[in-house]
Simulated scan of single mutants.
Amino acid sequence: MLFSQIPRISLLTEPTLLEKAAHFGDTIGHSSLWIKREDVMGLGMGGNKVRSLEFWLGEALEKGCDIVLAAGLPPSNLCRLTAAACCRLNLDCEIIHNAAPSNTKPRRGDSRFLYDLMGVRQIYCGPVDEQARKAFVEERAQELKNQGRNPYILGDPVVGALGYVAAAQELLFQAEQKHIDLRHVFISASAGPTEIGLLFGLRLMGGPDLHVHLVSVEYPAHTFWPIAQEIWQGLCEKLHVTPPLSLQYNTHFYEEYLGPGYAKHSPETWLALRLLARTEGIFLDTTYNAKVFAGLTDLCQKGHLPTDEAAVIFHTGGVPTLLMGEE
């Protein structure tokens, strides 16, 4: 078994839904469009990080860690889901935000309200960049060690990518069960673990006719591919297997749907968000998934994607940010 020697806990009780988006597909001219509903999970309002947490927290427990440190901006999906997973496991957790603390009480519609409900401690290190935040987390971990604790700093990209190697396996099984001749898979591309784990799994277990479409929400290609290659190589070493197909085989990377930049909206982003809500009753976040749907729509309308070949879009979650007004 692929993961038999790797520590893992179970946070997903069953496969996520694979639903046909017939009305949305009809509207944009695609006859076989499916959505992999990673936004619908039982834990913490769902999202792609749940899959990574199965392996991150599995490693933490194997190492005997008694407290988990996770870092991100206040609306971070990773932070919210880490807190929820630690509550389920009865494991102490601290969330570190690279933002200024608020002087107001947590209220509904505020991410702090969710952490307050879960009883998780939040620490603010000020509006610093990721490198300074990383240094702060490491200092906090050392403080905890000095107090006799055994902290686990969450976020190793290779360990996290294992979650989407598993997701690829799940998707291919579902497609076979539903008799879908899957030819295209779309997912957002950011720092790498989710999309490279998925790509690794599809290249390991899928056929050579499968195309993977990565819609960038953060980096240009020249920045993204070195990050991706490092994670890919790490997966080869960790799983002791090399996919027969290469990282960039039938892989398409799109920078043109990034818009003004990471977490910055474009008119096309909101058009895609509204269109999916009005045709399927499914909501999207604007940082990641709405840009993927906008890209897919544009590719179909320009004739750059065969509209009769089955395509799956991964909806990786993040919808709570729409309600928090923090995107």
Score class of each variant (00 low, 15 high):
86 C>Q: 11
23 H>S: 15
195 E>Q: 15
215 V>S: 01
11 L>N: 00
198 L>F: 10
70 A>R: 04
84 A>W: 07
175 A>Q: 04
227 I>L: 12
82 T>K: 08
158 V>Q: 03
144 L>K: 14
3 F>Y: 01
167 A>N: 02
48 N>G: 07
118 M>Y: 05
317 G>H: 11
16 T>V: 10
309 E>N: 01
310 A>N: 07
75 P>T: 03
304 H>W: 09
177 Q>V: 15
47 G>P: 13
134 K>N: 13
275 L>N: 00
258 L>I: 13
170 E>V: 05
165 V>H: 10
17 L>D: 14
80 R>V: 08
209 D>S: 14
154 L>H: 04
156 D>T: 05
211 H>Q: 15
129 D>I: 00
232 W>Q: 00
169 Q>C: 14
308 D>C: 00
132 A>I: 02
306 P>L: 04
202 L>Y: 14
307 T>Q: 15
13 T>L: 15
65 C>I: 00
47 G>N: 14
230 E>T: 13
71 A>I: 12
41 M>G: 08
292 V>S: 01
31 S>A: 13
196 I>V: 11
321 T>K: 07
261 G>Q: 10
225 W>A: 15
87 C>W: 07
123 I>K: 04
148 G>P: 06
209 D>T: 12
31 S>Q: 13
203 R>S: 04
13 T>H: 12
4 S>N: 07
96 I>Y: 01
191 A>L: 11
263 A>D: 15
63 K>W: 03
310 A>C: 05
68 V>I: 13
261 G>K: 08
290 A>I: 00
57 L>N: 08
170 E>I: 04
255 E>K: 04
95 I>G: 03
254 Y>E: 04
174 Q>Y: 08
317 G>S: 10
279 T>Q: 00
13 T>C: 07
129 D>L: 03
159 V>R: 15
142 Q>L: 15
208 P>Q: 10
110 D>P: 11
264 K>G: 05
181 D>L: 01
195 E>Y: 11
306 P>S: 12
38 E>L: 08
207 G>Y: 02
103 N>I: 01
3 F>Q: 03
209 D>V: 02
258 L>Y: 10
320 P>M: 11
68 V>Y: 02
14 E>S: 13
128 V>I: 13
313 I>Q: 01
253 F>L: 09
87 C>P: 08
181 D>V: 01
48 N>W: 06
129 D>Y: 06
122 Q>Y: 08
264 K>I: 13
285 D>N: 06
301 Q>E: 09
171 L>R: 02
202 L>A: 14
80 R>N: 05
194 T>H: 07
95 I>W: 02
250 N>V: 10
303 G>Q: 08
249 Y>A: 15
73 L>I: 04
266 S>H: 10
183 R>L: 06
146 N>K: 11
157 P>K: 12
60 A>T: 13
22 A>C: 12
223 T>A: 14
171 L>H: 04
118 M>H: 03
30 H>R: 11
143 E>Y: 05
39 D>C: 02
252 H>K: 11
204 L>G: 11
24 F>E: 02
79 C>H: 14
109 G>H: 06
311 A>L: 03
235 L>F: 05
195 E>N: 10
132 A>F: 00
250 N>F: 13
203 R>T: 12
179 H>P: 00
204 L>M: 10
208 P>D: 09
